[in-house]
């Protein structure tokens, strides 16, 4: 089997202009069929925002959020950021739902895994480990000065990297409130490798999303000058699960 059988992808990762040319050319080489669609106004707006966040980019977090969807490229762009995450979620679900064969969903994830920004081995810190995954997944979160969430992730599994890549595409650059609004059940339709409902110990979507939300929540609390919640991680997780 070979990667050229991957059906046309709907989501495109368009490295933001600030990303280093070296890594973007590497990515082009890795995916020769990667075609960049024309950005609509919304993506331009998003890129504009991401360009203004120099400090985080300097620290190595790039914004892979600019994308164009064949499905939605012609729609009028909503202006509010809150709608962006919801839109992306919809697009993600649509994209994976359009792939009837499980194998195609796996291939699509591997395709996105290859687009996950490289992560330094030395940053695979125990503190960043996402609990409860059957693979090792690391997630880091930061909040920029505009209150937008920046995420980085890595995994020792290619499929998990694919999950991370999609979640980062969806949530990187979003406001904390948007990140916290996503419900794990919304990801149920993107079922790859796991069946049915999300509340399983092995569900990487679920665990990574919860980890991102937990870190976001902690950063929000920190920013508001409150003492961070001193709960066991599992208690936080179950609280989220109930609301999710």
């Amino acid at each position: 089997m070979n990667s050229t059988t991957i059906p046309t992808t709907l989501l495109y990762f368009n490295p933001s202009p600030a990303a280093s040319t070296e890594s973007s050319s590497k990515r082009q080489a890795h995916n020769p069929r990667h075609v960049q669609l024309k950005l609509d106004k919304r993506q331009n707006g998003r890129n504009f925002l991401s360009k203004s966040i120099k400090c985080t980019q300097n620290r190595g977090i790039r914004n892979p959020t600019a994308l164009a969807s064949c499905l939605e490229a012609t729609e009028a762009p909503p202006s509010k950021a809150a709608e962006l995450v919801a839109d992306k979620l919809k697009r993600l679900v649509l994209e994976f739902r359009s792939l009837a064969e499980p194998i195609d969903r796996v291939k699509r994830l591997l395709h996105y895994a290859a687009r996950l920004p490289p992560y330094n081995e030395s940053t695979r810190k125990p503190e960043s480990r996402v609990p409860g995954c059957s693979t090792q997944v690391w997630v880091e979160a930061e909040m920029d000065e505009l209150g937008r969430m920046r995420f980085r992730a890595d995994s020792d599994s290619e499929i998990s990297k694919g999950f991370c890549s999609c979640l980062i595409w969806m949530l990187d650059g979003a406001e904390a409130a948007e990140v916290l609004e996503v419900k794990t059940r919304d990801l149920e339709d993107v079922n790859v490798g796991v069946y049915g409902k999300v509340n399983s110990r092995v569900n990487t979507w679920h665990n990574v999303l919860l980890a991102m939300q937990r870190k976001t929540q902690a950063l929000v609390v920190e920013r508001e000058g409150k003492r961070p919640l001193e709960a066991l991680p599992s208690l936080l997780a179950s609280a989220n699960e109930v609301s999710g």
Partner: peptide, 22 residues
């Protein structure tokens, strides 16, 4: 160089073979 969970996922999705990973 292949994560056991990736193996198990593909074995299940493509071949209907149920093994455990982790």
């Amino acid at each position: 160089n292949i994560h056991p969970t990736d193996l198990a996922t593909y074995l299940d999705q493509q071949h209907g073979v149920a093994i455990r990973s982790g």
